[in-house]
Each structure stands twice: as C-alpha cells, then as structure tokens.
Amino acid sequence: MTALGFLYPGHFAEDDYPRIEQLLGSDIRVDLVHTETGEDDCRVDVLRKTGAPQRLAAGVEGLRLTGAEAVLWASTGGSFVYGWEGAHAQVRALAQAAGTPASSTSFAFVHAVREIGARRVAVAATYPQGIADLFAGFLGAAGTEVVAVHGAGLTTAAEAGGWGADEVLALAREGDHADADAVLLPGTALHTAAHLTALEKALAKPVLTANQVTVWEALRLVDRRVNAPALGTLFRREPLVQV
C-alpha cells in the first residue's frame, strides 16, 4: 500500500481526491487534511496567508498518523504567489516538517508539463486576470512558454467549487489557443476529476488540472507510475524524463 498525504485548503473540491483514488484502481491510499483558509478571496495577500508556514505545519501534524510517504500542498494559488524561489522555500519547509518528500500543486504543473512533452501551454483559470498572470509567470520561470492566459474573474474558491461540467468545459475552451500543446486549469477548488476525458476529447489535446496533477506529483515523489486512462493523458503515458 502506498500512502499519499495532501494538505487541502478549505472545503471546495476535496471530493476530487477520493474519486481519483478510485480511478487509480491500485494499492494507493489518498489521505487529506484540511488546512485553515481564513478569508476566501483571490488576492495575493490572502493567498500568501493560506500558504503560510504555520498553517502548513499545523496540517502536517494531522498527516503524521496516516503514514504518508509523500506530502503535497494541494494549492496552486497558495504556492505560486510566493514566486519561484519562495515556492521552493515553502516546499523545503514542508518536507522538513513532514519528514517526507514534499511538493505543491504549482510545481506539480511544472513537472506534469514536462512529463507530457508540452512546449507551449495555455492557461485557463477561474482567477482574476492578474492572479492568472502570476501563475503564467511562475510557469515561465520554469522554462515553459505560455501562449495564452485567460482569467475568468472569480474572486472566491467557493464560486469555483460550485462550477459543474458545463462551466469547466467553457473555461477550458475560452482559455485554449491554437498554438498550445496543452491547456492548464489551475485551482484545486475546481472539480475536474470527473471531466478529464470529456475535456481532452473536446479540445483534442492534453488537459492538466490542479487536483489531477497534484495526485500525479505525489506518485512521482514515491516513484509510482499508474496507468489510469480516465485521468487523462498525464496518466496514460510512460514518463519522458525523471525530474
């Protein structure tokens, strides 16, 4: 049994995780601990508080008893708002607190883009445009070319958590670009686990979503590769590189 631990901020799309666990269809256990979010507002200062070291450290205590072999900070906005160096410092502190390998959703996107061999990507975010641009900048710092950035303008995670299949598909289509090899949907408050096959069929290209890449990143950290076609292209191919 492989045990994976996730620190998930609030209660928005956390049901994606047991769904993904089921779709993996393997000896993998997904354990979530909910961290304090405070104010639900998509602003840089609020997102930085969401990912503050003391909040993550408190969550790690809840994961100790699960036997997690890797820990993921399941928040995109709560990691990339710290910038490239700051996000690295965040996961280093998390790894030290957990005593296991650690990462975050922002780095999961970076590694997943490399995994599928995408050179150019489009970002389709629920965020306000300015926050979406910060995510694009984070990807750029990793060497990924971002050819389009769409921010839908939602200001709370609760709004994103209320979106269904139609809204998620519309978001992906609005953010897509002809030159993009893949479309990225950041935001772990957005339900996407049930829609990955439909999204990739509609766009005719790989789609990477926050909760999907977060679980994949945890598996990468423990050197597990699982073939789970219902979870999209990312889970349907052999790794291109070990990063």
Rank of each mutant, 00 (worst) to 15 (best):
T188M: 00
V123S: 02
G86M: 00
V146M: 03
F12A: 15
L134E: 06
V213L: 01
G99T: 01
H11W: 04
R225T: 13
A95N: 04
D16I: 01
R55Y: 10
L65Q: 14
A142Q: 07
H177E: 09
E21S: 13
S75H: 02
G137I: 05
E217R: 12
I20D: 06
Q96P: 01
A125K: 00
G83C: 04
F107S: 09
T156G: 08
A108L: 02
V33F: 11
R48I: 08
A3N: 14
A136R: 08
R119Q: 15
V149R: 00
P18W: 00
Y8K: 01
H34F: 06
D40H: 11
H34M: 09
G67E: 00
A125P: 01
V30H: 10
L72K: 07
T188L: 00
N211H: 08
L72D: 02
F80A: 10
Y8W: 01
G187D: 02
V30A: 04
E21R: 13
R114N: 09
W163F: 08
G5K: 01
L234K: 14
H191T: 08
E167H: 09
V60D: 07
G143R: 12
A189I: 00
R48L: 11
L171S: 11
V30C: 09
A157Q: 12
R92S: 12
A136T: 07
P186R: 02
Y127W: 02
V91G: 08
A210R: 00
I20W: 03
W163K: 13
A52F: 13
T233V: 06
T126L: 07
A202E: 07
E174Y: 03
A68R: 10
D31P: 04
V113I: 15
P239V: 05
R29L: 03
T155W: 02
A202S: 12
F135T: 04
A157L: 07
K201S: 15
P229T: 04
A87K: 03
Q96D: 12
T126R: 03
